[in-house]
Computed example of a mutant assay.
Amino acid sequence: VDMTFRIGENTTPMTCTVLLELVDEGRVDLDDPLTKWVPGLVGAEGVTLRELCQNTSGIGDYAAALRTNFVMNPTRQWPPLELASDGIAMQR
């Protein structure tokens, strides 16, 4: 119960399923810019919610570059905007 487990890409299908439910309800549009919903995210201009779910946003995967940091700091809480910023800095 007290164990922390990094789930990484395992949440993408679940997150996108919830996103599609929000689209069906008319609360968001797949072509909304990411910055509409995550204000202050520098470097993500032009990226849409659709591109995030299709893995075509051009935002890089920060995990490989930060793996050593993750291992050396297993109890650190990584702020989502910090990780997103690292991924944007590593655009494919």
Rank of each mutant, 00 (worst) to 15 (best):
A63W: 10
D86F: 10
V47A: 04
G8R: 09
D61A: 04
R50Y: 06
A64P: 07
V47G: 05
P33G: 13
G87N: 00
L52N: 04
D61P: 00
P74M: 06
I88V: 08
L20I: 05
P33I: 04
A63F: 07
T4W: 04
L34I: 12
E51D: 11
E21R: 14
E9Y: 12
D29Q: 14
Q77D: 09
D61M: 03
M72F: 09
L52R: 12
C16T: 08
I59H: 02
D29N: 13
G40Q: 04
L19V: 04
M3Q: 09
V47F: 11
N73W: 02
T68N: 07
P80K: 10
T35M: 10
N69G: 15
G8Q: 06
E21I: 14
A65P: 02
L20H: 04
Q77T: 10
L52I: 11
G26N: 08
L22D: 14
E25T: 06
L19Q: 02
V1N: 01
I59R: 01
G26I: 05
E51M: 15
P13Q: 02
W78E: 01
L66K: 07
D29H: 13
E21F: 12
G87L: 01
S57G: 05
S85I: 01
M72E: 15
Q77E: 11
N69M: 07
